[in-house]
């Protein structure tokens, strides 16, 4: 049905210090990953890297032969954030990934193509087609949807005119709030947070009172405690017409995972894995393929 599945690298969800981000993307540049999403998607208070820093990295990745997409904020609250988003959309060179309808509008106003990220509410084919008419070139399936959902939506994939991407690996973004849970947990007010989330470069694990790992706090974002791993379903994805398998990075080791899959090998399994959403079940479930 479709050609082979390709691999993309999602934006870094966590607050990493600048040298760590730069060395991470140097390794990305040297890898065989074709498509890289780049930018701050969680909190505008994180200023470790500024717009121009991201643009520099984007150019390095482009020079290394990558397709680069600038990813954008998921929850937009302040006018200053809109101004920053407009600057990203107007960069004149790289396509953007919209994670909020504000960016869909900004791109649409300029007649620019965009990727609809996993936090855009796109729950049926008619919505995808509407977004496509607004300039959407590719969509990332919302993380709570399944293989069966894709089967229905991609029935006539070749006629749709846009690509499909699935988050295949990583901690899943489950919710976003006005409240910063990390700052609150450290006893800090959001306005004086000192980007304390940088002390939790892979989030802060929450367990139930029975010791079950459930969630992961990442600033204003709540993630799944478990790491989704859909490597066993790649053949099914190809059959369904999925174009891109997204790896949402947890750290430099996520590049090893990506490289293993690109080489056609099995990648190491996450310690705590989940795949329930893909199977149409509670997201936290983990069943064998």
């Amino acid at each position: 049905m479709s050609s082979t599945l390709k691999y993309s690298l999602g934006p870094v969800q966590y607050c990493w210090e600048k040298p760590q981000v730069e060395s991470f993307y140097q390794a990305v540049a040297a890898s065989d990953i074709e498509l890289v999403y780049l930018g701050e998607v969680v909190c505008s208070r994180r200023r470790q890297l500024k717009f121009n820093d991201y643009l520099d990295i984007a150019h390095q990745l482009k020079d290394a032969g990558k397709q680069v997409v600038l990813s954008t904020l998921t929850l937009v609250e302040a006018r200053s954030e809109l101004a920053e988003l407009k600057k990203i959309v107007d960069n004149g060179e790289f396509m953007v990934e919209a994670n909020d309808m504000a960016v869909v509008q900004l791109a649409h106003e300029q007649g620019l193509p965009f990727v609809a990220g996993p936090d855009i509410n796109q729950y049926n084919l008619q919505t995808l087609q509407f977004l496509h008419r607004c300039g959407m070139q590719r969509f990332v399936m919302p993380v709570e949807l399944s293989a069966n959902w894709l089967k229905q939506v991609l029935q006539h994939k070749e006629t749709l005119g846009f690509e499909a991407e699935v988050v295949g690996y990583g901690h899943l973004p489950l919710a976003h709030s006005a409240r910063c849970f990390t700052a609150r947990n450290m006893g800090l007010a959001k306005d004086q947070c000192d980007t304390v989330c940088s002390r939790h470069p892979s989030g802060l694990l929450l367990e139930t009172q029975e010791g079950q790992s459930l969630l992961r706090l990442n600033g204003i974002q709540t993630q799944s405690a478990a790491c989704t791993d859909l490597q066993d379903f790649r053949e099914e994805m190809t059959d369904l017409g999925v174009d891109w398998y997204r790896i949402s990075p947890l750290g430099p080791e996520s590049l090893d995972y990506a490289m293993a899959l690109i080489r056609g090998e099995h990648a190491p399994r996450p310690e705590l894995a989940c795949n329930g959403y893909w199977l149409g079940q509670p997201g936290m479930n983990n069943l064998s393929a």
Binding site: L75, V76, L82, D100, V103, Q105, N121
Partner: peptide
């Protein structure tokens, strides 16, 4: 549920 929080959205 449409989650529109800004003038642009």
């Amino acid at each position: 549920q449409a989650s529109a929080t800004s003038a642009k959205a």
